[in-house]
């Protein structure tokens, strides 16, 4: 590994410049540094005008997603040592408008997320005296993988379908819909169905699978969407044979 590493960082300062550009920063290579450490070093020691999001630094908050050498990554868990190149290119997440430098506008995602009602829905609330909503480990195992999403939006950045058509509900939101559909305590499958099975819902997914590949939490949104497709398609078929029996 070289003693010096060059970070080629996407810069966009809308108040001062009309076009984005790349700016190179040469830093001393440190074996223990993740990309976020290097960006922090640049901001505190070299160029305080550089803007980027971060919070927990431990792969939990989902704030520091960026494109590192062309791939969507959480920069807090992406080690510089894993890139055997002298230059590492850092860009904002693809498919989102850029507010400034590496900071994207996440409004589209924030608006889509609640449309799939990603929370437990019950037909009737139990009185407190009735106790907890119990669940067996096997029932929890059905949805647990899909519940690990940290809303980092790496999957949206990797999804070519979302890149071509931002109306697509997208991987994380749909995976969360399936997470709650699979929950034994939930009765909201029907309530979610209009959004999930809309033209720009699950049917838009062409199963490229990049969302699953880049997910830092192994959520497998592509698998969740295929499960949703099968489930809702079978319900549709049932409703043809037995009207009123489908969702």
């Amino acid at each position: 590994m070289p003693e010096q590493t060059v970070l080629e960082v996407y810069r966009y300062l809308p108040d001062e410049e009309t076009e984005p550009r790349f700016q190179s920063y040469e830093i001393t290579y440190r074996d223990s540094w993740v990309v976020l450490d290097a960006l922090d070093h640049i901001k505190t020691e070299i160029d305080p005008t550089l803007s980027f999001r971060w919070s927990c630094r431990m792969g939990v908050c989902g704030s520091c997603g960026m494109t590192v050498n062309g791939e969507p990554k959480l920069t807090c868990e992406t080690f510089i040592r894993d890139y055997n190149t002298e230059t590492i290119k850092i860009e904002p997440l693809a498919h989102f408008p850029v507010i400034r430098d590496l900071v994207i506008n996440m409004q589209d995602f924030m608006e889509k997320l609640p449309t799939v009602s990603p929370w437990l829905i019950t037909d009737e609330d139990k009185p407190l005296e009735a106790g907890e909503y119990l669940q067996t480990p096997a029932q929890m195992a059905r949805y647990k993988r899909f519940s690990m999403c940290i809303n980092c939006m790496l999957c949206y950045s990797a999804c070519p379908v979302y890149g071509l058509n931002s109306l697509f509900t997208g991987p994380a939101a749909l995976a969360l819909a399936e997470r709650y559909n699979l929950d034994s305590r939930d009765e909201g499958t029907q309530e979610r169905s209009d959004v999930v099975t809309a033209h720009d819902g699950i049917w838009r997914c062409t199963y490229v699978g990049e969302c699953t590949k880049v997910c830092p939490k192994d959520v497998d949104p592509a698998g969740a969407i295929q499960m949703l497709k099968l489930s809702y398609a079978l319900d549709w078929a049932k409703s043809l044979v037995l009207p009123g029996r489908g969702r």
Binding site: D194, W203, L230, A233, W236
Partner: peptide, 18 residues
């Protein structure tokens, strides 16, 4: 705008999956 289920997509997808 309220989302509406796509009525034809399930048929196409079931044939594709089959």
């Amino acid at each position: 705008m309220t989302a509406k289920p796509d009525k034809t997509a399930p048929l196409f997808w079931l044939l594709f999956a089959g």
